[in-house]
Amino acid sequence: MEEEYSGGVEKKFIYINRRVPHGTAYAIESLETVLIGAAFDQDVSMLFIDDGVFQLKKDQNTESIEFKNFSKAYRALEMYDVEKLYVETESLQERGLSADDLLVGVEMIDRARVNELIDQQDVVLSF
């Protein structure tokens, strides 16, 4: 698609990512949907909860499993005007991780506030 989409109603989309990358296709499918959807000038947020926080883990090296290391693409999201990345504090802690382990800057959000974030959205897509 070379033409940019214009007109139409801007909606608020949130992509909720809940799974470890590489074992299943959920993480890459979510990311590709976000990248494709970015052409449509919508208000996009991404939220990483439960095992989804592993998608943003630094230093992923997929060479030996012969998969594409798509984790690098999360750092390109800003160029696609996807600037709102949220990570749930408790999910990180439960997995022995902290914000320093992540490959992009994110906004930390407490579990109790996840609901408020979802309440602001028009469309919720869970992967």
Binding site: I16, R18, Y26, I118, D119, Q121, D122, V123, V124, S126
Partner: peptide, 8 residues
């Protein structure tokens, strides 16, 4: 409801 969240 205002929205649907399908927890796949």
């Amino acid at each position: 409801h205002d929205r649907v969240h399908s927890w796949l």
